[in-house]
Simulated scan of single mutants.
Amino acid sequence: MSQVSLKQSLAKLGFAIFLTYLSVAMALPVVSVFVTEELKLPNWLGGAAVGVSFVATILSRKHAGNFADAKSSKKCFMLGFFFYMAAALVCMAADTSGMSASIAFAILIAGRLLLGIGESMATVGLLSWHFSRLGPSQSGKILSILGMAMYGTFALGGPVGLTLYKYFGFSSVMLASSIVPILGVIMFLTSPEVVPHKTTEAKKSFLNLLGTIWKQGFAVMLQGVGFAVLGAFISLYFKDQGWPYAGVGLSLFGIGFVISRILFGALPDKIGGVKVALVSLVVETVGQSLLWLAPHYSLALIGALLTGLGCSMIYPAMGVEVIKMVSPEQRGTAFGGFSMFQDIAYAFSAPIAGLLADKFSYSSTFLFGFIAGVVGIIIVRSMRINNLPSNSTAN
């Protein structure tokens, strides 16, 4: 593939993910506010509503990986886009007037579960499809573009979601979230299928794959704690402190994330993922400490920016290492398992942080993120630096 075609393919990938992931980004800071302020339920249930979508993602990762590897990676991510749309419409029904809080919460949870399945199918399918089309030597770039588009969406999606919620209510956020995935479907509708890899060799079981990549998985899981607590509670934290610019905090996180991917996206392919992940975790941990201890909103905003800068490169850095460790015909399944570790952080961090907020304060949620970052640093430091050149990636 020529450099022009490669750049066009990566740009299309990034733009499509940016559009479709608005379904997730616009809803993320709004869901916990809706649960606590409109349904009048406790913070831990607000966190649970945020995190439950990732439970569905965890449970569906194996199926999504097998579907992409054995059937069709394109159909896998297209189905994911349709799940995004369905999830938003179900969540919108939770805002029906006259409904009891318990029923509304149950409907909301159902929609969030559908969203989790959609995210699993969309991300695993897109990764597998692009690995096959562009080749494993581009894995670092593919992962960087994917994450930059996904989390860069929060620079726009978070504030847009909060603004829509403030002026037009929860239903307007969900309606918008149901529309944007349609554009992604249109963009890839005529794209070619990719023939799945065939092999006569025995495949590793899903559990064996997890055993192979567990350290890389734990690194992204611990990184995900900081992002999860920031996304779920920074708005409530700023409101509780009487600080302005809660939406700016989400934007700064997204901006930091995108800047890091633009400047350092090629580094994992060049110098190895371990070095990149280690530095990134240090930066994220400093950001979480500033959010935890900030006496003024300006330091908290800097902490949000540093969290984004640090979070950004850990997933692609560890993903490049995973690519080197698995065969081509199991990349989709391996990445399903690899991403599952991050999903675990997203599923359980927000509810745990909600309990901390109920018992102590909103600032304690960022202490949780700080501790996770420290543990992540220890795990990554224990990894053996892989000195193979970047072109040694399995073909």
Rank of each mutant, 00 (worst) to 15 (best):
L115I: 04
P159E: 06
I103S: 12
S191H: 15
G140D: 04
G158M: 09
Q138D: 02
F170C: 01
S137N: 12
L108H: 08
I182E: 12
A176W: 11
L162D: 00
G116K: 04
G125E: 03
I107D: 08
L183H: 13
F131Q: 13
P136W: 00
G111S: 10
S102V: 06
L113W: 11
G184S: 14
V180C: 13
L162V: 00
S128Y: 00
M148T: 07
S172R: 13
I179R: 14
V180S: 14
S144K: 12
G111Q: 09
F168N: 04
S177Q: 12
G184F: 03
S137A: 11
F154K: 06
S100R: 09
L175Y: 14
L175E: 06
G147S: 10
A155W: 05
F105K: 10
M99I: 11
M99A: 10
T190S: 15
S139N: 13
L175C: 08
Y167G: 03
Y167W: 13
A149M: 06
G140M: 06
L156R: 06
S100T: 15
W129K: 11
I186S: 12
F168R: 08
A122Y: 02
S177R: 13
S171E: 11
A101R: 13
G135V: 09
L127T: 05
T153E: 03
L156V: 15
A149S: 14
M148Y: 08
T153Y: 03
T123K: 08
I142L: 10
I109E: 04
G135C: 09
K166I: 00
T190G: 09
G184D: 02
G118D: 05
V124D: 02
S102K: 14
E119F: 01
S171A: 14
G184I: 01
L156N: 06
I107N: 09
L114C: 12
Y167R: 09
G140I: 03
L175S: 11
P136I: 00
Y151D: 01
G135W: 08
R133N: 03
G118S: 07
P136R: 15
L162W: 04
S171D: 10
L183S: 14
V160S: 13
L134I: 07
S137C: 00
G169S: 08
T163L: 11
H130G: 00
L162P: 00
G118N: 06
V180N: 05
V173Q: 09
G158F: 10
L189T: 08
G147E: 08
M187H: 07
